[in-house]
């Protein structure tokens, strides 16, 4: 780190849990963010500002007017652009020294596995269950940390998964019954609405968990799901045991 870096990251370095050594770890870390919409925007901007050395962002969508109510990485000038280019532009404006890799595609199959394998931590900011199940499978197969959050209406949920940790559940242990369930619920923001700052809260908390994992400080949400009801402003923490019959991680 040079003098500019010491100045830029000084407020991190002042924290005894991070210090100089922790900031060096952040600068050396590789994070994959899948989805740079409502959740992915704050994740990408905070991790860029925090000095994560290499951030890959994946999204196949283009910026639309109805995104601007909550997807703060994009603005009116980026309407019609790919979300990854729009988001990368904003991240670079905040921190030009980090390496940003844009993946303008729907990550799936071998490409998903390869991208997951290349990262230290994967952040799931997608908007549908099908993609979430596939990302979880890739993280289990590659034994990677998965920081997952979701939001809709006035509600948010998040957890951290890593099947290498003893007795740790995976995303499928909790939500897996939905994959082949008798009733399909459309839980997308486009079908149900979303209060703008709810994705900001959940995405910011994902960024916190990523940083804690990298600097190896504090207790992450491993084996716990955090549930947020913004309308009543209540949080609940739910213990999530590993499902011994889970078809993905058992």
């Amino acid at each position: 780190m040079d003098d500019n870096d010491l100045s830029r990251y000084g407020r991190h370095i002042m924290l005894p849990e991070i210090d100089f050594e922790g900031q060096q770890k952040l600068l050396a870390a590789k994070v994959l963010i899948i989805g740079v919409g409502g959740l992915g925007s704050p994740v990408a901007l905070y991790l860029a500002a925090s000095g994560i050395g290499e951030i890959s962002i994946a999204d196949h969508d283009k910026v639309e007017l109805n995104n601007l109510q909550r997807q703060i990485a994009h603005d009116e000038k980026s309407l019609g652009q790919s979300k990854v280019n729009s988001c990368a532009h904003r991240m670079k404006a905040i921190n030009s020294k980090i390496n940003i890799i844009t993946l303008e595609e729907k990550l799936t199959g071998r490409q998903l596995l390869s991208s997951v394998d290349s990262a230290d931590i994967i952040v799931d900011c997608t908007d549908n269950l099908t993609t979430r199940f596939e990302i979880n499978r890739a993280c289990v197969e590659k034994n990677k940390w998965l920081v997952s959050a979701a939001a809709i209406r006035w509600e948010g949920q998040m957890s951290v998964y890593h099947c290498g940790a003893k007795d740790s559940p995976c995303y499928h242990c909790c939500y897996g019954m939905r994959e082949n369930g008798s009733q399909e619920f459309d839980q997308s923001c486009s079908a149900n609405g979303i209060l703008s700052p709810v994705v900001g809260v959940m995405g910011s908390m994902q960024a916190i968990e990523v940083i804690k994992l990298i600097v190896k400080q504090g207790d992450v949400l491993l084996g716990r799901v955090l549930l947020f009801d913004a309308l009543s402003m209540q949080w609940e923490s739910m213990q999530l045991p590993k499902n011994p019959n889970c078809s993905v991680c058992a």
């Binding site: 992915g40 269950l129 979430r132 979701a150 939001a151 509600e155 839980q187 923001c189 739910m238």
Partner: peptide, 9 residues
């Protein structure tokens, strides 16, 4: 305690 599941983002 009962919650709906959430998948949006």
């Amino acid at each position: 305690a009962l919650w709906p599941e959430v998948a949006g983002g």
